[in-house]
Design a protein around this nucleic acid. Structure first.
Lengths: 216, 216
DNA sequence: TCGTAGGCGTACCGTACGGTACGGTTCGAC
DNA sequence: GTCGAACCGTACCGTACGGTACGCCTACGA
C-alpha cells in the first residue's frame, strides 16, 4: 500500500506559510472550531484566496497538518563509534525527543485533529501524523537498535517488537491522557518529569533488551 | 478536585436505553456525524422527546458515552490465595481485558468522540472515558500489585509507576494507531495477536518488577 | 366516555458556516 | 499610462443542523 507522503515537494510561499500559521494558531486555540472565515480574518486574506490555494476546507486542514508535522525533526543520531555509553545516550535522546514532542501543544492539537478526522472514515490526516510522529521515530530508532544488537549490546529477535516496547515504556498513558484533556496532567507537570521518565524508561529498556555488556 | 462521575444512579428506562443504543450505533457508523434528526429517526422517536430527556445534543452525547463506558466491566480478580501462579494469571487477565477493550470498535468510537470533545475545551467526555477506561483498570490493578508486593512476589516503590509501566507494556502504540485510523492495524489483525501480546507484556512486566520468588 | 399525559412525526425557525461572486486596490510588465 | 494578474474585503447563497412548536395518536385513569 506504500503510503507516500509528499512533503515540501512544492514548498509553500511565505505568504501561504503565514496563512498556515494562522490556521494552526486557530487550531491550537479553538480546537476544531476552525472556520474559513476565521482563518481569512486572522491571516488578513480573502476567503477566495484560501479556496484558490487550498481547494477546500479539507485541503487547508491537510496542508496545515502536513506542513506542521513535517517540521518535527528528530535530531539525527550517528551510529559511528557505538559503545555502551553512546548507545544509552542515543536511546535516552530518542525517549526525550518522543516525550517532548507528544507533550507539546502543537502535537496534541495535530493528533486531536487527526483523530477527529479519522472518526469520519478519513485516514488522511491520521496517516500524516503517524508518518511524521511514531513512524518517523521508528525509522530512525531501528537502525540504532540493530547496530546495538550487532555490537552485542542489545538482544532481541524482532527490532519491531523492541521498538514498540520502547514506545510503550516511554509514552505509557501520557499521550492518551493528554488527548483526552486530563486536567491532572498539566503541561508543566509533565515537562517537569520528562528527565526522570526518560531515565526510567531507558533503564527499563536496557533491563529488558540489554546484554551483560551493556553497562560496561 | 475529585472528579465524581454519576453512573447509573438514575437508571435509564428501557426506552431511553434504546435511544442511547441508536445514538451509539450512529456514532460507530458515522463517526461524529451524529445529528439529532438521525438519532430520532433511528430510534423512532421525536426530536422533542430527545430534548426533553437529554436537554441538548451535548447531554445526549454525554449520556451515551457515560452509559456505554460504564458497561465496560473488568472481571473482578480476587486476591485471596495469592501465589506466583495466580498473580501471573491475574496480571495476564488484566492485560487481556485492557487490550480487548481498547481494540474494540465501541472503545475506539468513544475515545475518538471524547478526544474530539476535548479539542473544544470540554473535558467532560474525556474524564468519563478516562474514568471508566484506564483509571478503572488502575483502581483494580493496584490492589493486586500491592498484594503481590506484600507477598514478596513483586518489587517496586511506587505502585503508580508500576501500573503505568504495565499500561505502556500492554498498550504500546496500538491505541493511538487505532485512533488515528492506521489501516495497517485491522481489527482482526490485532485481535489475532492479543494472546501473544498479553504473554509478552506479562513476561516483561515480571522481568521488571518480579522478585526471584515470582517464578516458583 | 372524557380528559390528560406522554410521545410520534413533521414542519418550521435561526444561525453558522462552506463555498462563490464581485467590486476595488496594488503592483509589476510592457 | 494601460493592462492584467493577484489579492483583499465584503456581500451573498445554499444548506445542514440545533432547537422549538404544534397537530395527532394512544393509553390510561376517573
Amino acid at each position: 500500500m506504500a503510503v507516500t507522503i509528499k512533503v515540501n515537494e512544492e514548498t509553500f510561499t511565505p505568504r501561504q506559510q503565514a496563512v498556515l500559521t494562522a490556521a494552526l494558531d486557530l487550531l491550537v486555540e479553538n480546537g476544531d472550531g476552525l472556520t474559513m472565515t476565521a482563518v481569512a480574518r486572522r491571516a488578513s486574506c480573502s476567503k477566495e484566496t484560501l479556496y484558490k490555494w487550498f481547494g477546500d476546507r479539507d485541503g487547508l486542514l491537510t496542508a496545515t497538518v502536513q506542513w506542521q508535522a513535517a517540521k518535527v525533526r528528530m535530531p539525527q543520531v550517528d551510529r559511528t563509534g557505538l559503545n555502551a555509553k553512546t548507545l544509552r545516550a542515543s536511546i535516552e535522546q530518542f525517549a526525550r525527543d518522543l516525550l517532548t514532542v507528544i507533550t507539546g501543544e502543537v502535537s496534541i492539537t495535530l493528533n486531536r485533529t487527526a483523530v477527529t478526522h479519522a472518526a469520519q472514515e478519513k485516514d488522511r490526516l491520521g496517516n500524516i501524523v503517524l508518518e511524521n510522529g511514531p513512524l518517523a521515530i521508528r525509522r530512525r530508532l531501528k537502525p540504532i537498535l540493530e547496530a546495538g544488537r550487532d555490537a552485542r549490546l542489545l538482544r532481541f529477535t524482532s527490532s519491531e517488537d523492541a521498538y514498540r516496547t520502547f514506545f510503550g515504556l516511554v509514552v505509557r498513558d501520557v499521550q492518551i491522557r493528554l488527548l483526552l484533556g486530563d486536567k491532572a496532567l498539566t503541561q508543566a507537570n509533565v515537562e517537569a518529569n520528562i528527565e526522570a521518565d526518560v531515565k526510567s524508561a531507558t533503564d527499563q529498556f536496557f533491563v529488558l533488551y540489554g546484554t551483560k555488556a551493556h553497562n560496561a
